[in-house]
């Protein structure tokens, strides 16, 4: 009798362990599948461009970069994201200081060029992502009323390691790092 009891107990325990392992494995698989269908992204409506994207990413060169929404951009001659508009002007009347510490924001004249009066020209602003460290100074300078708000920070998936727990999200005071379905609708388009 005692042998039968111990055998029964062994079989019972074995099934319990197998059941728990099965449930745990299924949970892990579902979690991995769910996280694989979503990525982290910056919600521009919440982002305060506080510099934590630069300092908190696990990468030494943050995966967060500034991007310019050209449909919103004013193509201004005197872009406050490019120029430090409070700096002393040069002989042409243009500010001598730049907003970006890394000089990652590039400027070029586009369209019909008036060489006699630069006030008549339009300028395109692009970001050199190899230099941009995601500090957000340009984003902050572009926010209304100073600018149109076309510049905003975004996670670049070519660099992002897709950590299960984003270290920037953990410290973001605005809760601006959100999960979005991969790799599709970004918060920027959601708020358009």
């Amino acid at each position: 009798m005692s042998e039968k009891s111990s055998r029964r107990q062994f079989i019972d325990l074995s099934f319990r362990i197998a059941g728990i392992a099965g449930i745990g494995g299924a949970a892990a698989l579902l979690t991995k599948r769910a996280s694989g269908n979503a990525v982290f992204q910056v919600d521009p409506a919440k982002c305060a461009a506080c510099d934590l994207c630069r300092t908190s990413c696990v990468l030494s060169h943050s995966a967060v970069k500034a991007v310019n929404n050209f449909s919103e951009c004013g193509y201004c001659q005197l872009c406050p994201a490019y120029y430090d508009v409070a700096s002393q002007p040069d002989e042409m009347g243009l500010p001598t200081g730049k907003t970006c510490p890394q000089e990652a924001l590039k400027r070029r004249v586009v369209g019909k060029v008036d060489k006699d009066d630069p006030n008549n020209n339009y300028y395109e602003y692009t970001i050199d992502e190899s230099l941009c460290d995601g500090c957000g100074k340009c984003v902050k300078a572009c926010k209304p009323p100073a600018g149109n708000g076309s510049l905003h920070l975004q996670v670049r998936y070519s660099r992002c390691l897709e950590c299960d727990a984003c270290s920037i999200q953990r410290v973001c005071p605005q809760n601006a790092i959100v999960r979005v379905p991969t790799p599709g609708l970004s918060p920027a388009k959601k708020h358009a």
Partner: peptide, 30 residues
């Protein structure tokens, strides 16, 4: 899954990431 690893590395390698956000500077000062 690297959550545990990330958490460990983040806390050990970048303790400064736990800082609060820097104050938002004012708008352009004229």
């Amino acid at each position: 899954p690297s959550a545990a690893a990330i958490g460990a590395f983040s806390s050990l390698a970048k303790p400064e990431s736990r800082k609060t956000a820097p104050p938002v500077p004012p708008l352009i000062q004229v």
